[in-house]
Design a binder for these strands. Structure first.
Length: 610
RNA sequence: GCCCCUGUAGCUCAGCAGGAUAGAGCAACGGUUUCCUAAACCGUAGGUCGUGGGUUCGAGUCCCGCCAGGGGUACCA
């Protein structure tokens, strides 16, 4: 409903044709819903802004009240307008609406759409989202958390916004690091240990390799050589690699399941080895790639002309085949991008939820794909717009002691974090709700603890670096997942305690009942809550547009705050009249639904009780 | 050297394409539980929006310089 209102105002504002159309929210304390600044228009016209605002207010009032030639058209386009009047104020035109009519419309939307409220119609546009994509030679650390959580939230949000979305987890099961592991296992490996605790053992080997390589750089060559043998199909190497891969995979899947993440596709880097090799030849043949110092590279144009005496700065080239003839991660990734484009066509965007340290790399990949597109590389798929690739980057996670490094053992494992989250949640439940039975407690602790971890990440702008701190990651008060879950649980419990005849009336509400409900929601707490519910669709749209889950997170936080205020100020079950009780129950029901839904979009479950 | 990102209250962060008095949480201090779970609510205190210029009727927001922190910079992924 609110988007409709926004468009109506927008339509009128086109009147200020010579300026950018601006619709701002009204200042706090005002009853207006929007404010339109007229300064720019006034300036261009050489008028006084205060006077311009007055003129526009008068004009628009005439239009909506039927005293203007444009009135007919306007009323045809916006037959259900809830705008009441326009009022000029210090250079702004404030927009006032018929509150009751607006509330009725919002309630109607909430009732009509039910569980689907906030969802947009299907767009027929496909987004392919790359996320998680771990290197499976080592265990998941908190560093992998961001990509996984952000990617999953984005997928959910984009789906709600109407996109067709394909989520891909591109597993790093190939590359020099496996050569290093093969070599390390040959040198220091223990057959039994690999059998019993494979992950632990692989990690030890990985760390040891890098420690020894520091003293003896020749080991790096040994690693590369072992990878080359693997790549050429050495039997011994293949067999061992398979074992490494399987045990890593098993551990990986267990951990990721705890986050409630499900991938549409698990793709493996190793599966793109052959295509990557072919791709190099094709790129050479098309003149997109070239030979340099024994390697095959894609060279890029200078970023800008530069200052004459010095050479123009160029983006470093992308190496796609090493001088020893083997491919690299970028080659396989590029091959995989080609596959994504052709297989899921027509693809609107290829999104990559990957840390910002890879910014340069993705810029290279972007340029490479652009070059390929221009040279007609994509035969089967149509790519209409340039810039199909979008790097959804996020800041680094570091520990108070410094950058995360598996090699140097400076790391917090994801499982360790999730265990701790659940443990702390258990403690708090024991304290706050001692009567809860033990098995229920474990379930609730899982949802609350893991929810807290997810929310801690998603509630802030992706781009910012995070210094990992237990207290922050596992916050259970204030702006945190448990606060939102608590609010949702309160809603559910109120409904549970409502009399069955009330619940029945709620379930059988129809259109004629709605104005009466709106009439009952008089208290400022109720009205603010209802108005905020009306903004849910826009929160989803903005989060999708900006690839920004935190937009949705902060919407939900505001909603929970408004619910909490409502909850402490306005009695529901003990409302003065039947009519008021019913209206408030409906409000509580809708709020609970939106909170639950919004949390689910972020990948956070809501417990039944807490 | 060059490129990218970040800098808002003691701490952690919001602030959407510049708009009417900069908002939260945590921490601090004070208050609220015979009443739908106090993981809550209300109040007090706390800000030269890193810094210096510029554009503008108007700048936390845009442009330039500088400072600080982080990341990246051809055969790792």
């Amino acid at each position: 409903m609110l988007d409709e209102l926004y468009w109506e105002v927008h339509h009128l504002v086109l009147d200020l044709a010579d300026t950018r159309n601006e619709i701002r929210s009204a200042p706090r304390g005002s009853d207006a819903i929007y404010a339109v600044p007229c300064f720019l228009h006034a300036k261009i016209q050489g008028e006084n802004p205060v006077k311009s605002a007055e003129e526009f207010a008068e004009r628009w009032n005439k239009i909506i009240h039927g005293d203007d030639p444009l009135s007919q058209t306007h009323q045809r386009w916006f037959p259900n307008s809830v705008i009441q009047r326009f009022e000029a104020s210090r250079g702004y035109v404030n927009v006032f609406v018929d509150q009751k009519a607006l509330h009725t419309r919002i309630l109607k939307d909430l009732l009509d759409y039910g569980e689907e409220y906030g969802h947009y119609p299907k767009l027929n546009k496909t987004m392919v989202v790359d996320y998680c994509s771990p290197n499976i030679a080592k265990p998941l650390s908190v560093g992998h958390l961001r990509s996984t959580i952000i990617g999953q939230a984005l997928i959910n949000i984009l789906r709600a916004a109407g996109y067709r979305v394909v989520g891909i987890n591109f597993m790093g099961d190939w590359g020099t690091q496996f050569g290093k592991l093969l070599y390390a296992f040959e040198q220091w490996g223990n057959e039994k240990k690999l059998e019993d605790e494979p992950i632990q053992h692989l990690l030890e080997l990985y760390v040891r390799f890098h420690k020894e390589a520091k003293e003896n750089p020749a080991l790096e060559d040994e690693g590369r050589a072992a990878f080359k043998r693997l790549q050429q199909g050495g039997e011994k190497e293949r067999a061992l690699w398979q074992r490494f891969r399987e045990s890593s995979l098993e551990a990986f899947e267990k951990t990721v399941a705890r986050l409630g993440v499900k991938f549409d596709h698990n793709w493996f880097e190793s599966e793109f080895e052959e295509r990557a090799r072919e791709l190099v030849d094709e790129l050479l043949a098309k003149g997109i790639a070239e030979e340099s110092e024994g390697a095959i590279i894609i060279r890029f144009k200078p970023l800008w002309p530069g200052k004459p005496p010095e050479p123009p700065p160029t983006q470093s080239p992308l190496v796609i085949r090493k001088s020893d003839g083997t491919t690299l991660y970028p080659t396989r990734d590029l091959a995989s991008a080609v596959e994504r484009i052709e297989r899921f066509q027509p693809v609107h965007r290829l999104l990559y939820a990957v840390a910002s340290e890879q910014t340069l790399y993705f810029s290279q990949l972007w340029n490479a794909l652009e070059e390929m597109r221009k040279k007609g590389f994509f035969k089967h798929a149509k790519i209409n717009q340039p810039g199909i690739l979008e790097h959804v980057r996020f800041g680094m996670v570091s520990l108070p002691t410094g950058k995360i490094s598996t090699r140097e053992g400076r790391i917090v494992y994801l499982d360790e974090l999730l265990d701790e989250a659940e443990r702390r949640a258990q403690e708090i439940i024991k304290e706050k709700n001692p009567d809860m039975p033990k098995d229920a407690r474990a379930q609730v602790a899982r949802k609350v603890g893991i929810g807290a971890v997810i929310y801690a990440d998603l509630s802030q702008d992706r781009i910012k670096d995070i210094t990992f701190e237990w207290s922050k990651m596992l916050s259970f008060d204030g702006n945190s997942a448990p606060y939102l879950q608590y609010a949702a649980v309160r809603c559910a419990k109120i409904l549970e305690k409502a009399k069955s005849e009330d619940r029945e009336r709620l379930d059988t509400l129809n259109e004629q009942d709605i104005p009466a409900l709106a009439e009952e929601l008089k208290e400022p707490e109720s009205v603010k809550l209802l108005m905020h519910l009306g903004r849910f669709p826009q929160a989803i749209a903005e989060a999708a547009e900006r690839y920004a889950p935190h937009v949705l997170a902060s919407y939900l936080y505001d909603l929970a705050v408004l619910l909490s205020r409502f909850y402490t100020q306005v009695p529901v079950l003990k409302a003065e009249t039947d009519a008021a009780r019913l209206a408030r129950l409906e409000l509580v029901e809708a709020t609970g639904r939106v909170l639950r839904k919004g949390l689910a979009l972020l990948g956070i479950e809501t417990p039944e009780e807490m």
